[in-house]
Design a protein around this nucleic acid. Structure first.
Lengths: 211, 211
DNA sequence: CAGAGAAGCTATTGACATTAGCCAAATGGG
DNA sequence: CCCATTTGGCTAATGTCAATAGCTTCTCTG
């Protein structure tokens, strides 16, 4: 009968911690409740559903990642900012693998809060890339390329996919990847014939797997 | 009691098809059995477990993807081969999203068959990149970079993450990404101070999430 | 044509998420 | 301070899965 003093944030926070320990897919309400000193159905006073809990983790994660990226790039610009942001991104993802995975979940269609933090995080990246004077479609291409590059590397790394040839330093590989991306950006900013000035707009439907 | 004529391959194949339709995480033994005209527990005559079924899907997928990549790069070399391979990779992944997700699952530690097909697929990439005379650690860096680049883009695309600014052509973005990677490779092959000649070797432990 | 092994089936179990319905603890207005 | 309301927690029960046990029926081989 004494109260545990839970609330939606506390639950999401502990869920995030637990997820980072055991993996997002092994986050279970039974053990989460146990960790919070409460019976399993009691969690429903603070969450809607498992999916809702995942969403809460995702929203927190997106916010945190966005802040990390912003902090890393403040005061820098151009290649310097890109490099700093890249390393901050990777560091955060590696130390919070499940939160990172959650941060890549697409917002549900009418979820304005989730949409907002998603856009905000991407906007940090967009702002940094603007240093290359890319506009319109070119900027979108660059943002997609940058996000893809980082996400691919980090998700392989957190999945342990680089244990092939484990003796080769992963830090060095990442460093070269980032340098390579910057080089690519340079070499392509010249040749680019851009047009429109489209930008981050609306959001689509649901997602699925998250591989 | 007429027999359904199932076997391990047939089950894995139908599982792969169903996964591509509904998503790997929504692959369920109940509906899989139904699709195969059999009761759910009967599947266990052909599979070990859900995890085993995922492994079977993964092995098939890795083999298929490896063949697709090999076919795309045969007769080509250098940037041409990389571009062809990249587009084949993306096309296959987009048409088989769940198989693609499965293809990124790490092999379990003693699973020699899975390890073999995994290495084989990566080896196709390694062979193509060899055209740049990258050796040892440099080659490993390049392979990691290439796989990361493709995987990041494709997994975002299949997750629907590019619906931000949906009006910008995704094909074009991919094309530029690939060109950018090639440019990066060029610009870095020059500056590279390499050393060892390490290569694809052994495999590590288990995996987890597959974001 | 017997009989062994493979391939199905029904019945059960156990782990989860989720819902219903009850009761106690905070809380806040008189 | 006191009671009414809201809030948070609990037990019990349900439904969906994966997984196991144990029985029956094909099927194929000697």
């Amino acid at each position: 009968m004494p109260r545990a003093g839970l609330n939606r944030n506390r639950v999401a926070e502990e869920a995030a911690v637990m997820s980072d320990e055991v993996g997002l897919s092994r986050l279970t309400l039974a053990t989460l409740a146990e960790r919070l000193g409460v019976r399993q159905p009691s969690l429903y006073k603070h969450i809607d559903s498992m999916a809702g809990l995942h969403r809460d983790i995702a929203v927190h994660a997106k916010r945190a990642l966005g802040e990390v990226l912003a902090r890393a790039s403040v005061g820098r610009s151009g290649p310097d900012a890109i490099a700093a942001m890249s390393h901050a991104y990777r560091d955060w993802a590696v130390t919070h693998p499940a939160r990172y995975a959650a941060s890549n979940l697409m917002p549900a269609p009418g979820d304005v809060e989730d949409e907002a933090v998603s856009v905000a995080a991407i906007q940090v990246i967009a702002d940094v890339l603007t240093a290359y004077r890319l506009e319109g479609d070119d900027a979108v291409d660059a943002i997609r390329a940058f996000r893809s590059t980082l996400h691919g590397f980090v998700s392989y790394e957190t999945a342990g996919a680089f244990r092939w040839s484990a003796d080769v330093d992963v830090d060095r590989s990442f460093d070269r990847l980032v340098r390579g991306f910057i080089a690519a950006l340079d070499s392509w900013a010249e040749t680019s014939g851009h047009t429109l000035t489209t930008h981050l707009t609306t959001i689509g439907e649901d997602h699925d797997d998250r591989t």
